[in-house]
């Protein structure tokens, strides 16, 4: 049976959320929040105790993926092939993978470094060195990959070392590339709405089960608020301006 009334639909979603929350709460009481807490603490203990090894492993693996794809794209760029179009597709895919892993490397390094800043970490200096090395490597590789892309497509502009790189880059993109970027950004906006809601729910559970405090809830809420306000502001602003794809 398909419900057509929007008001009924939203109430159904809220009731469903309430039921899930109640079941979760009951499960927590029956199994015991202490057990969840124990599992979480054990996992974090394991990570914290081996953080330097994890930092090195993650940094090395990401670096390998970046280097392999960058070098492979470089080799393909000098290759003489009859099907130039197909070859260009391969090169662009490798460059995209390499650039994506640069970003993944940054994010994972920050997470792991955040965990490494802990009184129990006996290798704190080593953790700092690994973090700095990974950040420098990823930044340098990002510049090299962007330069490689610019070499293949001289219309592309922008220096990753400058603060307005993203603006320079999007300005040098053509209409189809801009449309792809905007569509991807809108999809990401929608995903983020659900992710931030999930973050707040996790924050509430962490507060109840692990005495994690209000930081996660407040951070999730602030980010959600800023995202929605920024979206509305730019939506209104762009409606008044000339649409320039």
């Amino acid at each position: 049976m398909k419900i057509k009334n929007s008001y009924v639909k939203i109430i159904m979603w809220m009731v469903l959320g309430g039921i899930v929350g109640a079941i979760g709460g009951l499960a927590g009481r029956t199994i015991g929040i202490g057990k969840f807490k124990e599992v979480f603490i054990n996992i974090f203990e394991l990570i914290a105790n081996n953080i330097i090894q994890i930092q090195i492993a993650v940094g090395t693996l990401s670096a390998l993926v970046i280097l392999v794809n960058y070098i492979s794209a470089k080799k393909l760029m000098v290759k003489d092939d009859n099907d130039v179009d197909e070859l260009s597709d391969k090169i662009e895919l490798k460059q995209t993978i390499a650039l994506t892993f640069c970003s993944i490397n940054y994010i994972l390094s920050f997470i792991l470094f955040g965990i490494a800043i802990d009184g129990r970490n006996q290798f704190i200096i080593a953790s700092v060195i690994v973090f700095v090395t990974v950040m420098v490597f990823s930044s340098f590789m990002e510049i090299s990959i962007v330069n490689q892309i610019k070499k293949g497509d001289p219309m592309k502009k922008g220096d990753p070392a400058e603060l307005d790189f993203q603006n320079q880059w999007i300005d040098s993109c053509d209409e189809a590339e801009k449309l792809i970027t905007y569509q991807a950004a809108y999809k990401t906006f929608n995903i983020m709405k659900y992710l931030l809601l999930a973050t707040m729910i996790i924050g509430m559970i962490a507060k109840a089960a692990l005495n994690a405090g209000n930081t996660i809830i407040v951070m999730g809420g602030v980010l959600w608020l800023v995202m929605v306000l920024a979206y509305s502001y730019y939506g209104c602003k762009l409606q008044k301006n000339k649409i320039n794809l």
Binding site: V84, D85, S88, D89, E92, D153, M155, C173, D174, E175, A176, E177, L179
Partner: peptide
């Protein structure tokens, strides 16, 4: 012409020419 050459003449990227040819844009 290959896609890159046509893209250069039209002032767009090779990917855009490829997207148009595939009917995706």
């Amino acid at each position: 012409y290959n896609q890159a050459e046509l893209g250069k003449m039209a002032g767009v990227s090779r990917q855009t020419i490829s997207l148009i040819e595939r009917g995706d844009y």
